[in-house]
Amino acid sequence: MQVQLMSYGALTDVTGSEVFELEISQQSVTVAELKLILLARYPALEGKTFRIAVNERFVVDEFEVLPGVIIALMPPFSGG
């Protein structure tokens, strides 16, 4: 399946782009499984603090990711 991935803040430096399509071999994965897929693709995500949102709602690890959704990788910001 294909999902759209959007990265925010400094995570854009890790993924290399603010918005891109991500191809996943399964037809549905949990958010926990998605994190493992992302870690394999972007090893620099290891140890980074961020939340995952699906279609603009923050989700828990058990949430099921379905084809066509928009995934956001959201870190906390620091500057003021």
Binding site: G9, A10, G47, K48, T49, R51, F58, P75, P76, F77, S78, G79, G80
Partner: peptide, 25 residues
Amino acid sequence: DVFPNPPGEGEIQNCAESGVLGALA
């Protein structure tokens, strides 16, 4: 509830470290 624990030391940069244009502030 959103970010239960602070990021590690130096993980997230502030404006002094990463730069910012004033109008955004």
